[in-house]
């Protein structure tokens, strides 16, 4: 039995310990965020956070994730209550097919946790190993910058959003 802490909930799983974490998240826990892109650790579509660090769940045996806090895209927010990064991706329309979005957002979450006000170059470098095939890169960069602005401590300024902006 493997006990897994995912998005703040504990799960007891009867799976082979070398099962890639990705398949457990998707098929046992029904999470859609992390995606199978290559299974080779080359594209970033399967990215999740482990104790706050972005890891590739397609390469990670589930046993190695036990005892750590795993957060997936679903753990950040929901369509009704999105995380500022998710809100910024919607606002900037930073998806075409959207298959890479999970990796882009999870990797950006790690970046903003360590570097709350990144430059464009820092964003580009942080996302260097996350592939996007539709050519949405510039919108994604804008979304990460927007999220960084909006995640700044509130005392700096009132939220620079128009009424209705959060409307779903």
């Amino acid at each position: 039995m493997i006990i897994l802490d995912v998005n703040g909930k504990m799960h007891t799983l009867d799976v082979s310990p070398d099962t890639p974490l990705l398949y457990v998240l998707r098929n046992d826990l029904g999470l859609n965020g992390p995606k199978f892109g290559c299974g080779l650790g080359q594209c970033g579509a399967c990215t999740v956070l482990m104790d706050g660090t972005a890891v590739l769940s397609c390469l990670m045996p589930v046993a190695r994730a036990a005892g750590h806090k795993i957060v997936t895209l679903e753990g950040l927010g929901s369509p009704g209550k999105p995380h500022p990064l998710q809100r910024a991706f919607i606002k900037e329309q930073a998806a075409q097919c959207g298959y890479c979005s999970n990796g882009m957002i999870m990797k950006s979450k790690e970046l903003l946790d360590h570097s709350p006000d990144p430059t464009e170059e820092e964003i580009r470098n942080a996302l260097a190993s996350n592939l996007c095939r539709c050519g949405t890169h510039n919108n994604i960069i804008r979304a990460v910058r927007r999220a960084a602005r909006e995640m700044k401590p509130r005392e700096l300024k009132p939220r620079d959003m128009k009424p209705g902006e959060l409307k779903r």
Binding site: G30, N32, L73, E74, G77, P82, Q86, I90, A94, S101
Partner: peptide, 22 residues
Amino acid sequence: SVPRLDIPAKVTGDASYVQDLR
């Protein structure tokens, strides 16, 4: 520039793709 109808689900992990069909 109406926002794309499909993006909120895609960026929050709602089922969007045939890969998500269970």
